[in-house]
Amino acid sequence: MIDIMIRLALVFCSISMLGLIYRVIKGPSVADRVIALDAIGVNLVAITALISIVLNSHAFLEIILLIGILAFIGTVAFAKYLEKGVIIERERNH
C-alpha cells in the first residue's frame, strides 16, 4: 500500500520536474528561468527523500539539507546578478 503510494509520488514529482524543465527552456525572461531552476532544486529535495524511503536507508538524508542550501545560495546569487550586475562588490565606501 505505502509502496504504491511512494511510487505514485515519485511519478508526480518527475512529471512536475519535466514541466519545470519546459519552463527553463522556453521562459521569455531570465527571471522565469531562475524561478524554474529554484523549483527544480526544491523538487530534487523531495525526490531525494522519496528515493531514500524506496531504498530503505537513512544515508541520503544529509543530501536534502545540502541541496536546499545550495539552491538558496544559487538563487540569491542570480538575483543579485540580475539586479546589480555584480555578485560580490569591490568598493567599500559608498
Binding site: 538558496f72 543579485k80 539586479e83
Partner: peptide
Amino acid sequence: RLILGIVFLFMTSPISGHLINRAA
C-alpha cells in the same frame, strides 16, 4: 536533519522568491 531541512526550506524559499521577484 529532516526537521532542520523542513525549517530551512520554510525560512529560505519565500526569501529567494522575494529576491527574484524584486530583481525581475
